[in-house]
Design a protein around this nucleic acid. Structure first.
Lengths: 113, 113
DNA sequence: TGCAAACATAATTATATTTGCATGTATAAC
DNA sequence: GTTATACATGCAAATATAATTATGTTTGCA
């Protein structure tokens, strides 16, 4: 199992609007840097920096095609992670039944008071 | 569907070693602040700050039991998110077949060269 | 060989996050 | 009412992250 720290690193890496859009795009297929430059509206060095971060984390990789760098998804967690993030949930989790929210209740189970 | 920004906020909030451990613990059931103080080895104000952040994001909520504050999970995304993070994957995603990694290949589909 | 396209890297600056510490508040017990 | 418990909040210092600007590298082509 991934360590807590590794899980945190993955989350931190994905937790950025540009990077999450890059990953969603890579889900559809291979893309090169100038492709991202077009549809994200940020500078080329900035795109490269985000790609570099994702690569250092092992989340993506690339191959060379002439002078194009073609990036693709590598970490199998990512598709699952992105899918969960898109899911719609109708209801909140049920509050503990014995203990009404923001009102006094009883702490469930044994415990010092 | 959650907006990109909302997804990013959720990920950023979970992406911290203390907070991820708090959430994993809450998955098992209700816990109060001093419970966390025991098993995480950080100060009480720091625990409160992390709980406060999680609450502002709508990820957790609490009820009062005397002078105890009993926290519980609220956002239904969290259990699914934590589960995906724990999953073990045996293999990396397959690299695009037509294009060997780090070697020259052909960019799949039509594109300027 | 020289130049341009496609990209990476480095340094700087701006901004956000995290923590520690001091203090504040509500409840319970005495 | 006084005190202790259980917690929250505010602020400043330390640190991490992000974007901008400038510059470097590699490849393809004339």
């Amino acid at each position: 199992m991934r360590s807590i720290m590794h899980r945190v690193e993955v989350l931190k890496t994905v937790a950025h609007p540009v990077r999450i859009r890059i990953l969603e795009e890579l889900l559809k297929g291979v893309k090169c840097v100038s492709d991202f430059e077009d549809f994200l509206e940020i500078s080329q060095p900035n795109v490269s920096q985000h790609l570099s971060l994702l690569r250092k984390q092992g989340i993506i990789d690339h191959y060379m095609d002439g002078r194009l760098r073609c990036y693709f998804l590598k970490d199998p967690l990512i598709p699952d992670l992105l899918e969960v993030l898109k899911k719609d949930y109708i209801e909140e989790l049920p509050a503990p039944a014995c203990c009404p929210v923001t009102k006094k209740g009883t702490y469930p189970g044994e415990r010092r008071h």
